[in-house]
Each structure stands twice: as structure tokens, then as C-alpha cells.
Design a protein around this nucleic acid. Structure first.
Length: 435
RNA sequence: GUGGGCGUAGCUCAGGUGGUUAGAGCGCCAGGUUGUGGUCCUGGAGGCCGGGGGUUCGAGUCCCCUCGCUCACCCCA
């Protein structure tokens, strides 16, 4: 008998069930099957290009992100999960992938060029909305040690190949160059002076931005601001010779690989570490306002910022939730769950269910069974729902004869009697037939 | 951080202007079929109607507060 909590006036109130924190989600089976397949697809594409998996801690000393991403960025300034460790040192949950990977490079100094891929949660304290979470997940790559524009092309093509592999078609690749420490400061000054003349046309929130980071005014969505910045000088026209050459080589390379990229001179990404090439993939199928499915760029100064030797680098992050959202919107990358090879129905005491499922599994077959001595009808129902190809039925008759009744559940074939010794071979053969 | 919308069963949702014991579909469990699932029939379990306070003879319904979810702004994956 199960102990029932007494109901009535004196009964203690059951505690309210806890919920996952705001902006976080559980991914249950079978939805988790798509995650496994998505990550597996990304891993295989990255490893094909000689990127190796990196696992690094989910939290870092907060200064890794402060120095890397930038004190003035929105993410570090007001969204980072930051807390004091028990010994008082400030830690932070990773808000994005790149800074940790670069920190790991500086710490271990593997031979260059060094190419790594990752899959990781990322944490930002934002107000959640459609396809925006406090914990989201990214796959990504980082490549350090080469400033060759062909490396930019390689990195971008991995992302593009990944989207193609999933079946996505309705997305756009936007690309821009942020220049470098030679040409960008001059452009920023130029832009600031032009925008100061037009400050009356800009929305108020940009006024202080003009001082700190005039570039960010360019990506404002408001029509008035866009109007005021349409004929403003463009960063791509102010690049120094090396940056201009690099950028055109990148564009040539993408064209050679038949990857369509549109120049977006307003593309100004939010982390301070970017230089030269920046890019972003946006889904046209997602109706929610958050349609950026991936983005990245070159960060030639970042390794130095984190205390390493001058080392160029480039990478991207792709948001798993948003990519799956785009797949849903396009009706691609459907969920398909792998079938069980067999479900053992035992109405003769249960010993056979125990032993036969173990044998099937040791033989590399996928098998399940029912517990708690359920009725045959109930067990058959579970067998059906499990998606198994066949039910292996063992009752007193079979037990006495040393056989199993093999009942197909997905086809109209007849039920057959199989010797217990042959069951594994027969089930394995059925699996092969299916392929 | 700032606004709008919504909270009723495991899920999706009904419940005109307050009025007996709060409903449906799906799902779950059992039986019909004591050895056969998927169809069908019958029955059953499962609800502090998000929480608290107020108005009222009476609140799922009206008012206030609060929490949660959600969409949008900001920003980003």
C-alpha cells in the first residue's frame, strides 16, 4: 500500500513544485534526438575540416570576459551571470564561446594553426522572448594562428555547409569588415562627426552612444535612424589597404565556393574583439523577431588582450535553439526516432524478459521490456508504443518449448515461432532487412 | 530594466451579464478479449480554477496585489 498523505484541514500543504529558472528549458526525448543529430552533424563537418573538440569550463574568472568581450558591451555590462566564489574571486558563467577558447589557447599554447570546435550552453541575464533564452546553446569553431583570408572563407563555409546539411535554404549571409586598429579609429571619428551634425534626427538613446561607440548607431532598427544614416560614410570605403585587400579576398573566396554573401555595411557586432571580417546568418523563415541563427568574425587582437602573443583568429557561434526554430519554420530536419529492434513481452514470470533483453543489448540490438508484471495486453500496448519492430512474446508454452513467439508490429506479416537460441540472429537479420 | 497579452486535469482548451456536485478532446489506467498492440465500446483515476486579499448570501467568473508564462522594446545565438 502506498502511503497516502491525509487530506483534510490538518494536512500539511504540499510544497509548490519547483520550475526551471526563467529563460531555461528542459529538452526531453524525443526532441532531444534532434539535438543529438544536429550536434553530430556539426561535429562531423568540423572534424572533416580538421577542427578538434574543445571542452572548457562553463565558468571563468570574470575578467576573461570583461577583457575579451569588452567592458562596454551590453553582454558584459548588464547581462553576464557574475558572482563571487567562496574565496571571493569573481567568476562568470560564459555568455558566449570565443573568449573561453582563446583563454584556453593562451594557457596551453598548442601549436599553430590551432582549430577547435565546441558545443556549449551560454548564459545571459536577459528578458526571455521568442527564441531568446537565459541559457541557450551554441555550436561553433575557432581558428587561431593565420590571417589568411582563405581561413575566413573556410570558417564561413563550415557554417554554411552546416545549414545546408540540415536542409535550410531560406537564410542570408551578411558580411562586413570592421577594419583594424589602423583604419577603424579614423573612421569612427569621421562617423562621429557626421552623426553629431545630425543628432537631432537620431533617437535619444544614441546620444551617449555617439561618444562611446558611434558604430552601434548604424544597426539601429528605427526607420528615422536608418534614414539619417543612409548616406553616411561607410566603413568598407574607409578601410586601409591591407584590410581592403583582405576583405576583397574573402569575398572572392566565398564567390568561388558559390556561397552567396551580401555586403551589409551596417553589420556591427556587439563584442569589442572583432576586427576585419564580421558576418551573420539570418533566417528569413523565422517569424519571431530574433532571427539571427549564427554570427562571428575575425578577432586579431583578442589573444593579446588576454595576455598572449599577437595571434590572429576567427570563429563563429551558431544558436542551436534558433537553428531548430528555423528548421521548424522551413519544415526541414524533421524528427525521426530510431526504432527499437525488439520489445520483450514476458507473461511467464519475468526471468526471460530480464535475460533476453540483456542478451539482445549485448548483441548490439536496441531492446526494451515492461516491468512490474503487467498484463499481456498492457505489455503489448507498451510494445506498440515503443516503436519496436517486433514483440518477442514468452508465455508458459514458449517457456516450456524453449521458443519465443515473434510478432511483427509494423507490418502485416504473420507471427512466427523461433527457437530461443536463434532469436538474436533473427532479430538482427530483421534489422538488416530494414536498411 | 520598460510595456502588452495570458494563467482552469499530464497536454490542448470550453466554461454569455457571478448561482447547485467545474466540463470536453487527447493522453494515462482497467475491463470488454483469464495469451496478443495499433481500431472500437464501457468504466476509472487525475483539479487549493497560479497564489493572497477584497466585494457578495454566493466568486473559475468582478476588484486589488503578487507570482509565473508569453510577446515586444533594448540587445543578441
Amino acid at each position: 500500500m502506498r502511503a497516502q498523505s491525509a487530506k483534510g484541514p490538518g494536512a500539511p500543504r504540499p510544497a509548490e513544485p519547483p520550475q526551471s529558472p526563467k529563460g531555461t528549458h528542459d529538452i526531453l526525448w524525443p526532441e532531444s534526438v534532434r539535438w543529438e543529430r544536429l550536434i553530430g552533424t556539426f561535429a562531423s563537418l568540423s572534424e572533416r575540416a580538421a577542427y578538434g573538440l574543445i571542452q572548457s569550463p562553463l565558468f571563468e574568472y570574470a575578467e576573461v570576459f570583461r577583457r575579451g568581450i569588452g567592458e562596454g558591451s551590453e553582454v558584459v555590462g548588464k547581462e553576464m551571470y557574475e558572482f563571487a566564489d567562496r574565496d571571493g574571486k569573481m567568476l562568470a558563467l560564459r555568455p558566449e564561446g570565443t573568449a573561453s577558447v582563446v583563454r584556453a589557447y593562451v594557457q596551453h599554447r598548442p601549436p599553430l594553426p590551432w582549430k577547435a570546435w565546441y558545443v556549449t550552453p551560454a548564459f545571459r541575464h536577459e528578458n526571455p522572448q521568442g527564441l531568446r533564452y537565459r541559457q541557450h546553446h551554441q555550436v561553433g569553431v575557432e581558428a587561431l594562428g593565420a590571417s589568411d583570408p582563405d581561413l575566413d572563407v573556410e570558417v564561413i563555409s563550415i557554417a554554411d555547409d552546416f545549414f545546408v546539411a540540415l536542409g535550410l535554404r531560406r537564410y542570408e549571409l551578411k558580411i562586413n569588415s570592421m577594419g583594424d586598429e589602423v583604419c577603424r579609429p579614423a573612421y569612427v571619428e569621421l562617423l562621429r562627426s557626421v552623426l553629431l551634425e545630425r543628432r537631432a534626427e537620431l533617437c535619444d538613446e544614441h546620444w551617449e552612444r555617439l561618444e562611446a561607440n558611434p558604430l552601434r548607431v548604424l544597426d539601429c532598427k528605427r526607420a528615422a535612424c536608418r534614414e539619417a544614416t543612409t548616406d553616411v560614410p561607410r566603413l568598407v570605403d574607409s578601410l586601409c589597404e591591407p584590410c581592403a585587400t583582405h576583405f576583397s579576398r574573402v569575398r572572392e573566396g566565398l564567390a568561388a565556393l558559390e556561397i552567396e554573401a551580401v555586403l551589409d555595411h551596417r553589420l556591427v557586432r556587439g563584442f569589442d574583439y572583432y576586427s576585419r571580417t564580421t558576418f551573420e546568418f539570418a533566417s528569413a523563415a523565422i517569424t519571431a523577431s530574433q532571427n539571427g541563427i549564427g554570427g562571428g568574425g575575425r578577432y586579431d587582437g583578442l589573444v593579446e588582450m588576454l595576455g598572449g602573443p599577437a595571434t590572429p583568429g576567427i570563429g563563429f557561434g551558431i544558436g542551436i535553439e534558433r537553428v531548430l526554430g528555423a528548421c521548424d519554420a522551413e519544415g526541414v530536419f524533421p524528427l525521426d526516432t530510431p526504432a527499437l529492434d525488439a520489445f520483450v513481452v514476458d507473461v511467464a514470470g519475468g526471468a526471460c524478459a530480464r535475460d533476453l533483453t540483456a542478451e539482445l543489448r549485448r548483441a548490439g540490438l536496441r531492446a526494451d521490456r515492461a516491468f512490474d508484471g503487467r498484463s499481456m495486453k498492457a505489455q503489448m500496448k507498451l510494445a506498440d508504443r515503443s516503436g519496436a519492430r517486433v514483440a518477442l512474446i514468452v508465455g508458459p508454452d514458449e517457456l516450456a518449448a524453449g521458443t519465443v513467439s515473434l510478432r511483427p508490429l509494423r507490418t502485416a506479416s504473420d507471427q512466427q515461432i523461433v527457437a530461443l537460441n536463434d532469436v538474436i540472429a533473427v532479430v538482427a537479420a530483421l534489422r538488416e532487412d530494414e536498411r
